[in-house]
Design a protein around this nucleic acid. Structure first.
Lengths: 333, 333
DNA sequence: CTGAAAGCGCTAACAG
DNA sequence: CTGTTAGCGCTTTCAG
């Protein structure tokens, strides 16, 4: 900047004014400064700027997702990026891998980089770092999963209602022996979806014991194995609710291998790519990751602009998409 | 840091030494400093640090991909993140949307944030910003697509060979009327894949005129429409090579709608999720985005560590995965 | 082993 | 409309 000022024959502060589009610069001066900037191929150092700037904003956001290559997470990421880009804000993205320690390290790394705000997926029971962010007035919005503590903004799918809807859909087709295949119980969304599953059973007067729950499935491989075992039973369930996208994929593989794709009913939670191209199409309770990302970034930016209303818990509705697999009736006895 | 120094009763430089794990600090002093850091919940400001640090490294990388929610890009993103994390480097990710102007703006934004290195997917004919990065000694590695100019590190799939292999695979099954469905010709990978397609035709002595080329398909919607039109011809091609993941999805939809999934042969470039679950499975020439990301980050970090050898052009091989759709023979005349 | 002083590139506050 | 001065939080340099 010094060099630009020298070349343009102005003071350093005038260059600063031009770059930041501040008022009180003569058009002539400004254009001389722009010429010098071009000539020297100069680019401001935003980091240095934010050091002194009131509020110390870095125009930077930290995003923590299950994994940047999970379709749900990356769709969310994309809509957050779009909102950020519109404000000249850059996004640091990190993957969590459902590891509480990694979560803590990632947030600490974000803090060292002085991000203005955080959008987080959590894998931990408690979020000790919230004390740090609160003390520093760094807004935090949780996405996908809510922290147990509450008192923080959160944007999540209506997991319980969605799971209940999926289950009720199967019950309505006449199924009574329905299995839930789900992730580790410690994951908040998995717990909510299980609740929804049980809600629907009890609303239909089906004893919970008729519902089969297989949990601790953390990838499509383990889901496939569990499903294969379920199908091999003497009296297997007639319908299946898989409570997560990767689990649905594993279940599909198992159904395929067992030749049961057309005779066992399946509803998945969270849509999967090409779900409409397999035969039969996979009925799912779709989430809206794009909308979740949009609402979460809107929340962060509102906080950054001074909104200090009560923390909001925003429930994004899910949508049942019938494609065939969920409409298969139970076999005639 | 001032506060920490005061609380620990040491000089500010000693705190700096402790945090950066520099030698010449008495263990006792160090532990007093750590206590103060804990007590004050202090986190260094890496940005401020890099301002004065020799080399001015920010421990930050800029990543530009087609879109963070494209499966190919996000797989690459993940492996780059892993390599970066191991070195305490954070990654800024941006989406390109195949827009040359966006590319330029994104690189400028990275420059303003003083990233140490860049991993870029390009959509532009020329990359004017390379002058700036070179002047600043910021290593740049291109991924997925190579710049026309050369002279820069690049890690890309062997698009031409992969496309030729896909096409030869169809020819080997007896097809002669083969259509290529591809993206805009201005995209470097699309051009390479078209070359590979033509290579294979000519190697088999099939006149290029027998090959049908439909280009300018930029999403699955336009691909589906183009494919539907192709299938409606009097003498439609008997085999199809779709040169990109989204195009393959569109083609699959069209085949399904026309009831031709079992009678028209298809090979896609780039694998797609659930390709093995549709019926028949989708034969693809798979890329290895994880490996591309790994090699690209290795290249950037090597450059950052002083490697000033000739720019490398690394070709990552593709792999043909037979799943059924590509092994369908032409109909008997 | 430790600390004081200078300065990285920028912006806030104030003078002109 | 423009420039000067101080100082953001840190690391470098150099002197104890």
């Amino acid at each position: 900047m010094k060099h630009v000022a020298a070349l343009a024959g102005v003071g350093i502060k005038t260059v600063s004014r031009v770059i930041n589009d501040e008022p009180n610069v003569a058009p002539q001066t400004a254009s001389r400064v722009w010429d010098a900037i071009q000539a020297l191929d100069y680019h401001v150092d935003m980091q240095a700027g934010s050091l002194r700037r009131a509020g110390g904003r870095t125009q930077t956001l930290g995003l923590l997702v299950s994994s940047v290559d999970n379709p749900f997470a990356s769709a969310m990421h994309r809509s957050i990026e779009d909102a950020a880009l519109a404000r000249g804000v850059a996004v640091f993205a990190s993957s969590l891998d459902d590891d509480a320690e990694r979560e803590d390290l990632a947030v600490k790394a974000f803090l060292r980089r002085r991000v203005d705000g955080l959008i987080l997926t959590t894998a931990s029971r408690a979020q000790p770092y919230l004390a740090s962010t609160a003390a520093r007035d760094i807004p935090v919005v949780f996405v996908d999963r809510e922290p147990a503590s509450g008192g923080v903004d959160a944007v999540v799918s209506d997991n319980r209602a969605g799971a209940a809807e999926a289950t009720a859909h199967l019950i309505r087709r006449g199924h009574r022996r329905i299995a839930l295949l789900t992730d580790r119980a410690s994951i908040q969304t998995a717990a909510e979806r299980r609740r929804g599953f049980l809600d629907a059973l009890s609303a239909a007067g089906i004893p919970a014991s008729d519902g089969e729950v297989v949990s601790e499935l953390h990838d499509s491989q383990t889901a496939q194995e569990a499903m294969t075992a379920l199908l091999a039973r003497d009296e297997p369930p007639t319908a299946f609710f898989s409570a997560q996208n990767l689990i649905t994929v594993g279940v599909l593989h198992a159904l395929r291998a067992a030749g049961r794709t057309r005779t066992a009913a399946l509803v998945g939670f969270d849509d999967i790519p090409l779900a409409d191209l397999v035969e039969p199409g996979v009925t799912v309770v779709a989430q809206d990751p794009h909308e979740i990302g949009r609402l979460a970034s809107a929340r962060v930016f509102a906080r950054l602009e001074g909104d200090d209303s009560e923390p909001q818990r925003i429930l994004v509705p899910t949508r049942l998409i019938e494609r065939g697999s969920g409409e298969i009736p139970p076999p005639r006895p």
